[in-house]
């Protein structure tokens, strides 16, 4: 077994050029980076809707404090994140009335391969090597392609300002750079928000699902959605009943435009020689037609007119 495997590697080593070996190594490195990426596991069964995360987020980002802190009435209507609130907690009724309510925190999902960053023509939105998807306001044109490209409706725009910016959760990238956890996760009193490495949190999520049979929905939202996100959710209520889009598929959004972008060099390389060939051919057939006409003595006037055009063109 061992020998045959070694032999196989030898053969592969001889037969396979560097290019063949290079590809899987690269993919492995990428998946390693993804599993090492900073991530948060949100456990909807543990959230009590205290909205402490909202307050911590507002403080860390210098935003106006959350609306009506401690007031249950804010849960009456479903709220969206906004230019003044990068995270909000919403309440959903549990399908079993005796179970009461469940709460879901929303914010930027920090996709592994984000639509917003791929949409941005000026790299104002950028997926950093460290993991967070951050915004560089000085580069932004305000075209709002990021907003429509995002499957999770995260980027928000300052429509009321003459000099508007896009606003969204930055995963507290600056705090993370100093070794601190994101503000929201640092204040969660029940452990509903757990900050860690993505790979470890996926293990943790699976462990909770398996060790509590019948409790959780057997799905980790964010593991594969839209190519995978760094915010992961587990819940005991089906995700489509808690405001999650469950029709997003698993393709990473930039993958959808890759073919279109690949056409650019093809068009730029093939069109000019093709068109110049066509041009030469039409010129030549025109000249041939003119010659045969004047040779036959018929349509002499037309031929000489075309000859004159040729001359003026040169």
């Amino acid at each position: 077994m061992d020998v045959s495997r070694r032999t196989f590697f030898k053969i592969a080593g001889v037969a396979g050029a560097a290019g063949i070996a290079g590809q899987p190594a690269k993919a492995e490195a990428a998946s390693l980076a993804v599993s090492q990426a900073p991530a948060v596991l949100v456990d909807a069964t543990r959230c009590i809707g205290c909205r402490g995360c909202e307050a911590a987020c507002a403080e860390a980002n210098g935003l106006p404090g959350p609306v009506a802190p401690g007031d249950e009435a804010v849960f009456e209507a479903r709220r969206q994140t906004g230019v003044g609130a990068y995270t909000v907690v919403n309440r959903y009724a549990h399908p079993k009335a005796e179970e009461g309510y469940r709460f879901v925190k929303t914010q930027c999902m920090h996709c592994a391969d984000p639509a917003c960053a791929s949409a941005c023509l000026a790299k104002a939105l950028e997926k950093t090597a460290a993991g967070p998807v951050v915004y560089h306001p000085d580069r932004c044109l305000g075209c709002r392609y990021c907003m429509v490209a995002c499957q999770f409706d995260v980027p928000k725009f300052e429509f009321e300002k003459a000099s508007p910016f896009v606003r969204k959760c930055s995963f507290c990238a600056e705090r993370q750079a100093q070794g601190l956890p994101p503000a929201c996760t640092s204040v969660c009193p029940t452990g509903a928000l757990q900050f860690g490495r993505r790979g470890e949190l996926l293990e943790e999520a699976r462990t909770r699902i398996y060790q509590n049979p019948g409790t959780y929905v057997r799905h980790i939202y964010g593991e594969h959605e839209a190519g995978g996100t760094n915010w992961l959710y587990i819940s005991d209520v089906p995700f489509d009943r808690m405001g999650f889009r469950t029709d997003l598929g698993t393709t990473s959004p930039p993958e959808l435009t890759r073919t279109a972008l690949a056409a650019v060099p093809v068009v730029l390389t093939l069109w000019p020689p093709l068109l110049m060939g066509l041009y030469t051919w039409t010129q030549r057939s025109r000249a041939a037609a003119a010659q045969s006409r004047s040779g036959a003595g018929a349509g002499h006037r037309q031929a000489s007119r075309q000859g004159g055009e040729e001359a003026s063109h040169d």
């Binding site: 949409a119 941005c120 023509l121 000026a122 104002a124 932004c140 044109l141 305000g142 392609y145 972008l261």
Partner: peptide, 23 residues
């Protein structure tokens, strides 16, 4: 555009080459 004065940004120094909008 919210910030049309930044139109030169993708033209001069910050190239979002992976973006269809850039093309």
């Amino acid at each position: 555009l919210g910030r049309p004065w930044n139109l030169p940004v993708p033209m001069v120094y910050s190239f979002g080459t992976g973006s269809v909008m850039f093309e």
